[in-house]
């Protein structure tokens, strides 16, 4: 490559170095130092703490369930959109990314109206006599999951749509001509070839759910997830050391999960 072209890369590279790499490195470094000594005490303290372990577990549970539900809802939707006519496709695509265009705050408030004790769902269920007392949905992990699925479903649909539109439909025809029923062709050809998209979409949803702040903060009530706990430590308790440790734990979890799932997606992808 032309060396001069490298100069085009320089401003972005400098920006990233100055405002991302340096702070992250400093943050990570600070977590290993206490009273001027190198120590793992910061981490050990957290993993010995039952309260933090519960928060970590809730966060992972919410993220995993959100990811699975998004996959389950997103896959058929993306499949349908990919097979629709061009006109229908653009309408459906616009509809499915519409939620991305509203702020998470506004969306979360809408869910509060729907999920609350006197919200739409509870009023309806009480009115038709299915239950006598309103259900506790709002301010539980379930409410977080509902909000997060709503937030991330468009993301997985768009990711999957890209993979599905790249799928050569001749392959399905080839399978049919060799004796496969439409379902068998889907199971043996379409699904295996779109699984990498499902995994990549899943990574995006999982990482997004793991690090989301607004939605769990507004819909979770007193329920904490790691990101809200981090905020609380930093802004309310002013314990930046603890906040840094939480941040590093989040980063590590994210990297491990992304790495594992990426490796899995690559192994499934025949083109490497």
């Amino acid at each position: 490559m032309n060396k001069k072209a490298l100069y085009l890369l320089l401003p972005g590279l400098l920006f990233l170095a100055a405002f991302m790499l340096v702070p992250i490195t400093l943050t990570i470094a600070s977590t290993f130092v206490q009273d001027g000594k190198l120590t793992l005490e910061g981490y050990l303290h957290f993993f010995r703490d039952g309260y933090f372990n519960r928060i970590l577990l809730t966060t992972l549970r919410v993220s995993v369930v959100t990811t699975l539900v998004c996959m389950l809802l997103g896959y058929p939707a993306a499949y349908y959109i990919s097979r629709a006519s061009a006109r229908k496709k653009s309408i459906l695509l616009a509809l499915s990314i519409f939620p991305l265009l509203t702020s998470p705050v506004v969306r979360s408030f809408s869910w509060m109206i729907i999920l609350g004790k006197k919200g739409l769902i509870n009023s309806f269920l009480v009115n038709i006599g299915l239950i006598d007392k309103p259900l506790d949905i709002l301010y539980t992990p379930v409410a977080m999951m509902i909000g997060l699925v709503h937030l991330f479903l468009p993301l997985i649909i768009i990711t999957l749509l890209g993979v599905m539109e790249n799928l050569d439909h001749e392959l399905v025809r080839a399978a049919r001509s060799l004796g496969a029923s439409p379902f068998a062709a889907f199971r043996k050809i379409t699904f295996p070839l779109t699984v990498p998209g499902l995994i990549i979409g899943g990574i995006l949803v999982f990482v997004g759910s793991l690090t989301a702040y607004t939605t769990p903060a507004l819909l979770g009530g007193k329920e904490r997830v790691v990101s809200t706990f981090l905020y609380q430590n930093a802004m309310t308790l002013n314990d930046w050391q603890a906040a840094s440790v939480i941040a590093v734990i989040m980063i590590v979890i994210t990297f491990v999960v992304v790495g594992l799932m990426n490796a899995w997606a690559n192994r499934l992808n025949p083109k490497g």
Partner: peptide, 20 residues
């Protein structure tokens, strides 16, 4: 008669080999 019941062999221009 649906495609899968015809027992015809089809060779595609793009070959359409299953990449996986």
């Amino acid at each position: 008669v649906p495609v899968e019941k015809r027992n015809f062999g089809f060779v595609f221009q793009s070959y359409a080999l299953f990449p996986h």
